[in-house]
Amino acid sequence: MKEWYVNLWSHLTFILSLFIATLWVLNLLNPMMNFLNNWIADSAIFLLCISSLITSAISIWRRYR
């Protein structure tokens, strides 16, 4: 229970990557809807980058402590 933050960041990264992958597939199927060129997709990509950085840092920190 004391390392709940590791599970939180791992799940957040997984959910955001599924969301980005879904937007990418939808954009391939219907490019006129322009799913990847709006503020929601931009903020999801930004959050995915931040959460993957945090998840990586936690994993590296746990490995070497």
Score class of each variant (00 low, 15 high):
1 M>I: 07
1 M>Y: 07
2 K>V: 12
3 E>Q: 04
3 E>P: 06
4 W>V: 11
5 Y>N: 12
5 Y>Q: 11
6 V>C: 05
6 V>R: 09
6 V>Y: 05
7 N>R: 06
7 N>I: 08
7 N>G: 10
7 N>M: 08
7 N>V: 08
7 N>K: 10
8 L>P: 02
8 L>M: 13
8 L>Y: 14
8 L>V: 10
9 W>K: 08
9 W>I: 11
10 S>I: 02
11 H>Q: 11
11 H>A: 10
11 H>D: 14
12 L>S: 12
12 L>K: 12
12 L>P: 05
12 L>F: 04
13 T>D: 05
14 F>S: 12
14 F>I: 07
15 I>W: 00
16 L>W: 02
16 L>Q: 12
16 L>A: 09
18 L>Q: 05
18 L>A: 10
20 I>A: 09
20 I>G: 09
20 I>N: 09
21 A>P: 07
21 A>Y: 03
22 T>R: 03
23 L>Q: 09
23 L>S: 04
24 W>I: 15
24 W>V: 15
25 V>E: 15
25 V>W: 06
25 V>C: 14
25 V>A: 14
26 L>E: 10
26 L>R: 12
27 N>D: 15
27 N>R: 04
28 L>I: 05
29 L>V: 15
30 N>V: 14
30 N>S: 14
30 N>P: 07
30 N>T: 15
30 N>R: 10
31 P>K: 01
32 M>A: 11
33 M>T: 15
33 M>R: 08
33 M>Y: 01
34 N>I: 05
34 N>R: 02
35 F>M: 08
35 F>H: 03
36 L>T: 00
36 L>Q: 08
37 N>P: 11
37 N>I: 09
38 N>W: 00
38 N>S: 00
38 N>P: 06
39 W>M: 00
39 W>L: 01
39 W>F: 01
40 I>Q: 03
40 I>R: 01
40 I>A: 12
41 A>S: 14
41 A>L: 01
42 D>G: 12
42 D>P: 02
42 D>V: 01
42 D>T: 04
43 S>Q: 13
43 S>F: 03
43 S>K: 03
44 A>D: 01
44 A>H: 00
45 I>S: 13
46 F>P: 07
46 F>Q: 12
47 L>C: 14
48 L>A: 11
49 C>H: 02
49 C>A: 10
50 I>Q: 02
51 S>I: 01
51 S>M: 02
51 S>L: 02
52 S>R: 08
53 L>V: 11
53 L>R: 06
53 L>N: 10
54 I>Q: 12
54 I>H: 09
55 T>Y: 08
55 T>F: 07
55 T>A: 09
55 T>R: 09
56 S>T: 14
56 S>A: 12
57 A>W: 00
57 A>S: 13
58 I>G: 11
58 I>N: 13
58 I>Y: 13
59 S>E: 03
59 S>N: 01
59 S>A: 03
60 I>T: 07
60 I>Q: 07
60 I>M: 05
60 I>H: 02
61 W>R: 11
62 R>D: 10
64 Y>E: 15
64 Y>C: 04
64 Y>G: 05
65 R>S: 11
65 R>D: 14
